[in-house]
């Protein structure tokens, strides 16, 4: 999923965000997954977005 898609889904805006909100939220999500012992990981795809695995 691309960063733009993510942003649009979450906040209804298409433009590139001016803050690192997504990174912060993703790292938070990663931490929560790790703490919960989940096998699912979120990978960053350079220049594109994120991928669930």
């Amino acid at each position: 999923m691309s960063r733009e898609d993510l942003f649009e889904q979450a906040w209804g805006e298409r433009e590139q965000p001016m803050s690192n909100t997504i990174e912060v939220l993703v790292s938070r999500l990663r931490r929560k997954l790790r703490e919960a012992g989940s096998a699912v990981t979120i990978e960053a795809v350079k220049g594109l977005g994120y991928r669930l695995r």
Partner: peptide
């Protein structure tokens, strides 16, 4: 055009 960076 100001970027905001939130540290982890």
């Amino acid at each position: 055009q100001v970027r905001i960076h939130l540290a982890e």
